[in-house]
Nucleic acid binder design. Structure first.
Ligand SMILES: Nc1ncnc2c1ncn2[C@@H]1O[C@H](COP(=O)(O)OP(=O)(O)OP(=O)(O)O)[C@@H](O)[C@H]1O
Length: 726
DNA sequence: TTGTCCCCTATTTTT
DNA sequence: TAGGGGACAA
């Protein structure tokens, strides 16, 4: 195997065979590469069987890439390796061995919205007003508790105020509900795996023996439960290699604790520590700027980072008028670079703090026919029609899954309305049975009018018939059958509006996805039921980034969070404004430092070019608000940063960041009393603050003017613009 | 029971 | 801005 693609420090980490190992290093220093080559080396040089190796990645996509690279390095010798996220690995363990603690392998994985629904049900059962205690907040609290491995009882003991006591009772109820629906939420996957390993010595011994080498990427973002799981699994062989960078810890809102990586050397006093200092990804100007930003943080371990790419383009900073202008500037730049043959679309990434910011870019890119892929909060599988279909499938697997049943009982409408549903729910709650059991309970059915009774019985018949069908047919056939016999597809088509037809299209696409999944499983001998289970569980753990296809020539857009671990030749960081990053909701110094790390993660995704943008004005909830640059950019005050205008039109020499101090409020644009004078390119104009300039271009609503004296180009909305002919 | 219309509110980030 | 929920008529 060719280890010459590693530097000395990387080699040191890769060759370290037994015992705990910490690779602690900055962005782009080749940490992930170390993990990959360490695995390859263990298999190739030391003859370790792949099934004795467990590698944990942050996303499913990262797992797939690692598998792919190992296949490339080792060919078939890499088969049998365990690579996946914490959640997918726990899922696999629970499927294999969960029965020992009463988890049948066909459990359902509840996602966030299912979770919320369960909390709502619990609130109703406990007679708590949802307006008084927000279901989402409570669901979050429950998640936090599980991440700290607190049972409802333990949580209750620790509850210090009224709210927490409420949460404790909801939590207890919530767990009971999950159990009766044979469901696990995301956190349960970890919690129950740990429970399994802690209470079942034989099973623990088996997995501890199996995973002789454990490697964890992005260790700075593990939470307490994940930490406990790793320790538990590694306890015996102690061949644990963790890799991370405290400056890239950005998931504390999800319970992750950076302290866990900082504590590694105390947990394993004999740990070998390797630091990597050479960055292979970015040019010097990018690295310098990123370093200036992150250096402002106080809670960090200092680290060096250098690069041989000392000759890069300067980073740019551009203030746009508003978000549309921001999108326009980015689109123009991309278009120009592609047209000149310098770049392809897939070389570009647009990164932002919040998903809502993608909108202006989508619109602009659509208009300019720039192909793009949005990695969004809304997954394909989260679309309403797909979730409905999945709910049907879950009910087919497990009719006692009341959350799913409730979702589809009247979709499409089948005469089972709110009042019937209320009666069913009340009955189910009263007798402690599932909704489906209630629907079959003569005591309840007796109270229905003939019309309702018929509707209910038809529904039960539909489900039974589908269950029978699913037992004896392929997954694809079942899905097709379901779309027919539930009347779902017909319902959408009969509605006939654009939205419904769109949804119908998505459902057909879903059938294709199912076919693909089934084809991949072909070699494994599975019963139709197993296939269906595996499919549902698999989908529950997918995130949108996992479906990103990097071979397609398209610009990618995603949040800073989603970009973790990725790299792109040209990166635009947009909306770098106070209130967005740091986000207005971050308050404590700790929060602020995490926001700064987020910016750092974004900056360090760039290989060749980094472009920072912000807008002077932004629409929030539809109303326009003045915006000022993010205070984080102050760290770059002495960095020469030309704007994209200057880059394009030449003009003034790169100037330092023009800082608009926070106290100097931007004037909201005054509505123009008369039709604005049309400006022509080449025309001389005067601006009250910036003085004389030359118009370089006019568009429908915007005029761009070049000012002398290092000011470069500025754009103004024609509406209410203070420019005058000179 | 269904469908429509209008008002209100929520928005950080996600496995 | 949008989408969810409540009020109301058919
Ligand atoms: N020894 C090396 N020689 C050449 N290129 C390398 C070397 N090590 C890593 N690289 C390249 O550097 C880039 C960053 O590597 P990698 O993703 O492993 O870094 P990382 O430390 O995991 O980054 P991050 O923390 O930002 O996710 C990749 O393109 C990788 O191929």
């Amino acid at each position: 195997m060719d280890l010459s693609v590693l530097n000395l420090q990387q080699l040191e980490a890769v060759l370290h065979k037994d015992g705990p190992l910490l690779v602690f290093a900055g962005a782009g220093s080749g940490k992930t590469r170390v993990i990959t080559y360490r695995i390859a080396n263990l298999i190739h040089t030391h003859g370790v069987s792949p099934r004795h190796i467990l590698a944990v990645t942050f996303t499913n996509k990262a797992a797939n890439e690692m598998k792919e690279r190992l296949r490339h390095l080792l060919g078939d010798a890499a088969r049998g390796l365990w690579v996946g996220t914490f959640h997918s690995i726990c899922l696999r363990i629970l499927r294999e061995s969960g029965t020992a603690i009463g988890i049948p392998p066909n459990f359902v994985v509840y996602d966030e919205s299912d979770q919320l629904e369960v909390v709502r049900q619990a609130l109703i059962a406990l007679n708590i007003d949802e307006k008084q205690f927000n279901a989402r907040t409570i669901a979050n609290q429950i998640s936090r508790a599980k991440e700290r491995l607190l049972t409802p009882e333990q949580y209750q003991e620790r509850a210090i105020d009224f709210f927490e006591r409420i949460v404790a009772s909801v939590y207890r109820n919530y767990q009971a509900f999950l159990r009766s629906a044979n469901a696990l939420d995301f956190d349960d996957l970890l919690v129950r795996t740990i429970e399994l390993l802690e209470t079942q010595p034989l099973i623990r011994a088996r997995y501890q023996d199996q995973f002789r080498y454990i490697l964890v990427d992005e260790y700075q973002d593990v939470n307490y439960a994940q930490y406990v799981l790793v320790r538990l699994l590694a306890e015996n062989h102690r061949n644990l290699c963790v890799v991370g960078d405290d400056d890239q810890a950005i998931y504390s809102f999800r319970g992750a604790e950076v302290e866990l990586i900082l504590r590694f050397e105390q947990d394993f006093p004999d740990a070998k520590v390797v630091k990597l200092e050479r960055n292979y990804r970015s040019t010097q100007p990018i690295l310098d700027a990123a370093h200036k930003v992150i250096q402002e943080n106080t809670l960090r371990a200092p680290k060096k980072l250098w690069t041989e790419r000392t000759d890069g383009a300067p980073i740019t900073f551009t203030q746009a008028i508003d978000q549309e202008d921001e999108a326009r500037i980015v689109a123009d730049y991309i278009f120009q670079q592609v047209r000149q043959g310098k770049r392809r679309f897939k070389d570009f990434a647009v990164l932002y703090r919040t998903n809502a910011q993608s909108r202006a870019f989508e619109e602009r890119f659509l208009r300019e026919r720039i192909p793009y892929r949005l990695v969004g909060a809304l997954r394909f599988y989260d679309r309403r029609e797909i979730k409905d279909l999945l709910a049907y499938l879950r009910v087919v697997v497990n009719p006692d899954d009341s959350v799913s049943l409730k979702r589809i009982i009247n979709v499409p409408p089948r005469q089972i309305g709110q009042s019937t549903l209320n009666a069913v729910q009340a009955h189910a709650a009263e007798w402690g049975i599932s909704l489906y059991q209630a629907l079959n309970d003569p005591r309840l059915l007796g109270t229905f009018t003939p019309k309702t009774l018929q509707a209910v019985q038809q529904f039960v018949l539909l489900i039974e018939e589908l269950r029978e069908f699913a037992r004896t047919h392929s997954l694809t056939a079942t899905v097709k059958r379901l779309l027919e016999s539930s009347g779902y597809l017909a319902w959408l088509e009969q509605k006939g509006d654009a939205d419904s037809l769109d949804r119908a299209g998505n459902l057909r696409e879903f059938v294709t996805v199912v076919e693909g999944f089934e084809r991949k499983l072909q070699d494994e001998e599975e019963t139709p039921e197993d296939t269906l289970n595996a499919f549902l569980q698999h989908i529950a753990l997918l995130s949108d980034i996992d479906t990103l296809d990097e071979s397609r020539d398209q610009v990618v857009m995603m949040t800073f969070h989603a970009a973790k671990g990725l790299e792109f030749p040209v990166v635009f960081l947009v909306g770098l404004e106070q209130g967005i990053i740091p986000h207005a909701l971050s308050e404590t110094p700790r929060d602020i430092e995490e926001e700064r790390r987020l910016l750092y993660v974004g900056m360090t995704r760039a290989m060749d070019e980094l472009h920072l943008l912000c807008a002077r004005e932004r629409s929030v909830y539809g109303s326009r608000k003045a915006a000022i640059p993010s205070p984080f950019l102050r760290a770059l005050a002495d960095t020469p940063m030309p704007s994209l205008f200057q880059l394009r039109y030449g003009g003034a020499k790169p100037s330092p960041l023009q800082w608009t101090p926070p106290h100097r409020r931007q004037e909201p644009p005054k509505p123009a009393p008369e039709k604005p004078a049309p400006f022509l390119p080449g025309q001389r104009v005067h601006h009250p603050q910036h003085g004389y300039g030359i118009v370089v271009r006019t568009q429908e609503h915007v005029v761009t003017v070049m000012f002398p004296g290092g000011k470069g180009l500025m754009s103004f909305p024609l509406q209410g613009c203070p420019l005058e002919e000179a």
